[in-house]
Nucleic acid binder design. Structure first.
Length: 594
RNA sequence: GAUUUCGUAGCUCAACUGGAUAGAGCACCUGACUACGAAUCAGGAGGUUAGGGGUUCGAAUCCCUUCGAGAUCACCA
């Protein structure tokens, strides 16, 4: 079945040719949804054609409308208001679309032959995951699904920052103050335990520095003299030199962290196909520096440090290799980008990383482009805004960080509380109920974080996030559960849907749902083009709302006309599939009862 | 200081990328369960899109400017 939008574009293009002898490519005819105060579902603005056609916008609208009415069977009505052409789709088309829809409602369809890697999460191993990571994880996971829905083969990657001064700090504090405690002995999750020693390090460091200052040292002198910091640096050196004791401790503590992370990943429902570890990648990229020097893209200073001049692009000179020959962050990222391409032959590579690193990625991508790397044009930084709290920024130093595990648990508890109050899940086993609370709590949390445009900074309001009414994940889940109840009842009543719909006339609220569902494909494409799962979150909310409106206005089983009953059951079924599919893309489950 | 992102109802967010009278949710007010699930629906109130100027048939969106907020600007990662 050809999509109505393509039909409209093609017909209008023909109209321009026949009426005004003007060539306009179908794809350049952009229809928009009609505002609900006007009749119709698809709108074309006619102002831009006034010059080409040599007529006033209103006249063009009328010409086009009449042409469509005559030549396009799928249009039943039109009206023109101040240069806007609003058209109504015929009953036949909408009914056929609903019955035989090729709207995609699962991931099982043709691949486009392209491969994309989505790197997300990418935590440091010195502290547990927090609210900011949750936005990252939900976005990354959803983005991967968006690409899948667009026919890409997707590799979800996690580049773990497992080495460096940060983990040495935790290790050192653990050695000094840890008394050999373990996750088992302390009853703490592994990542929490290691995080505890990172905090301890910072605390002791502050203490030592304060003493130094009170003994007459200046701030700067104190910074230099602090023994803890010096010890941490020594430890990093020992690590780099392969000191077995240090490596053993490093392995032990990092493994604790991974256990903790895995448990969190599992509970929030995200997963990865490939893990990279910086301890394996941090030396990469040096050959590329050589390559860059030899073909004149990089230059070397007298002190042997290597740089690239990006002033022509409005940026600065950027160091790519230190004077002592060691790598910096960007060297490693160059190497890793290369590695990813060589390992997977990816066409696109997405980095889900906060917008504080915008400059870094600008520089990175520019360097790779200047080096003429074949994958350079497929690189994209999915830059997302920070998550603020009502009290302001999250700051680990001030203890205002919202822990991911705690938050998930709170959402689950809240789901349990509200579900129990409503008393709608009689007959659920304890396990089923538990699963449901998780589903609903996570839905609320995920939806809350995903519905906002990723690029934008957002506010996390705890009170609002646990609201299950209105513009929320549970609202959409509820609509789905309602639909499931309808389908169950339809089965019980043995409603036959195998009837003829020839004389069926659709009600407005039915047309509204179908019109919404017509937008599914476009929405999924848009989400990929804009790197924004929020597009789907907003869309599926509209679908649910439109359905609820229909649900309240019309009865299904009280209806006397058998074809209406059958059609409404089928339409409910289709809507349910669309909702489930969209929620699945953004990582939210669709319970059948709640 | 330089670069950059942003500023929309009391609050949190939309606005199909330059289109119609700027829309939703929360909160507030009114109504609807002896209906197929009220985690719902219908309605009301709430706006000089931070301020000013410009571009044009038409601006929240593009340009200039003022004010305000964030981020980045290390031989850190």
């Amino acid at each position: 079945m050809i999509h109505i939008e393509n039909i409209l574009q093609k017909s209008v293009s023909e109209a321009f040719k026949n009426l005004y002898n003007t060539e306009i490519e179908p794809k350049n005819l952009k229809f928009q949804p009609t505002r609900k105060e006007f009749e119709g579902s698809h709108t074309l603005t006619c102002f831009e054609f006034a010059k080409k056609a040599g007529k006033a916008p209103d006249a063009i609208g009328n010409d086009l409308g009449n042409y469509l009415l005559k030549n396009c069977l799928n249009i039943s009505k039109f009206n023109v208001v101040k240069g806007f052409l609003n058209v109504s789709i015929s009953n036949e088309y909408l009914i056929n679309f609903s019955l035989f829809s090729n709207a995609k409602t699962n991931f099982d369809f043709e691949k486009n032959g392209e491969k994309v890697m989505v790197e997300y999460s990418s935590p440091n191993t010195n502290k547990p995951l927090h609210l900011g990571h949750l936005r990252n994880n939900f976005l990354g996971f959803a983005m991967a699904n968006v690409f899948r829905a667009n026919g890409f083969e997707v590799i979800k990657a996690n580049l773990i920052n497992d080495r460096g001064i940060h983990i040495c700090k935790s290790m050192l504090a653990y050695l000094k103050f840890g008394n050999n405690e373990t996750p088992d002995s302390s009853g703490l999750k592994g990542d929490k335990l290691v995080g505890k020693y990172y905090v301890e390090f910072e605390k002791q460091l502050k203490l030592e520095k304060a003493i130094l200052i009170s003994n007459g040292n200046s701030e700067e002198e104190a910074d230099k003299k602090v023994s803890l910091m010096q010890d941490a640096q020594k430890m990093l050196l020992a690590w780099e030199n392969g000191d077995t004791k240090v490596l053993a401790l490093w392995n032990k503590m990092n493994n604790w962290v991974y256990e903790g992370f895995n448990s969190t990943y599992k509970s929030i429902g995200v997963s990865f196909d490939k893990f990279y570890y910086e301890s394996n990648t941090y030396l990469l990229g040096k050959e590329m520096v050589e390559e860059g020097i030899s073909n004149g893209i990089f230059y070397q200073k007298e002190d042997k440090s290597v740089w690239i001049d990006l002033t022509a692009e409005g940026l600065d000179h950027k160091l790519v290799l230190r004077s002592d020959g060691t790598s910096v962050y960007i060297t490693q990222d160059m190497g890793t980008a290369d590695l990813k391409y060589k390992e997977f032959g990816i066409n696109k590579s997405i980095y889900v990383v906060g917008n504080e690193q915008d400059y870094h990625f600008n520089v990175l991508f520019l360097i790779l482009k200047k080096m003429g790397k074949p994958y350079a044009s497929g690189l994209h930084h999915l830059s997302y805004g920070m998550v603020d709290l009502p009290s302001g920024k999250m700051k680990s130093r001030e203890g205002t960080v919202v822990d991911a595990d705690d938050l998930v648990q709170e959402m689950k508890d809240e789901a349990q509380k509200q579900t129990t109050e409503l008393g709608k899940i009689d007959g659920f086993s304890a396990d089923e109920a538990e699963k449901l609370y998780e589903n609903i709590g996570l839905a609320a949390l995920k939806y809350y974080l995903i519905k906002v445009d990723p690029k934008k900074r957002m506010l996390f309001n705890p009170a609002e996030s646990i609201d299950f009414h209105g513009y929320t994940g549970p609202f959409i889940q509820y609509t789905h559960a309602r639909i499931c109840a309808i389908l169950r009842k339809s089965n019980e009543l043995s409603i036959s849907t195998n009837v003829s719909f020839e004389s069926l006339v659709l009600e407005n609220c039915e047309r509204n749902i179908i019109t919404q569902i017509l937008l599914l494909d476009k929405t999924i494409k848009q989400a990929a083009e804009e790197y924004s799962p929020s597009v789907i979150a907003n869309y599926v909310y509209e679908v649910a709302k439109t359905y609820n409106s229909f649900y309240a206005e019309l009865s299904i089983f009280q209806e006397k006309d058998a074809q209406k009953v059958a059609f409404r059951v089928l339409l409910s079924c289709l809507t349910g599939k669309v909702i489930k599919y969209c929620l699945e893309i953004i990582g939210i489950e669709s319970p059948e009862k709640m």
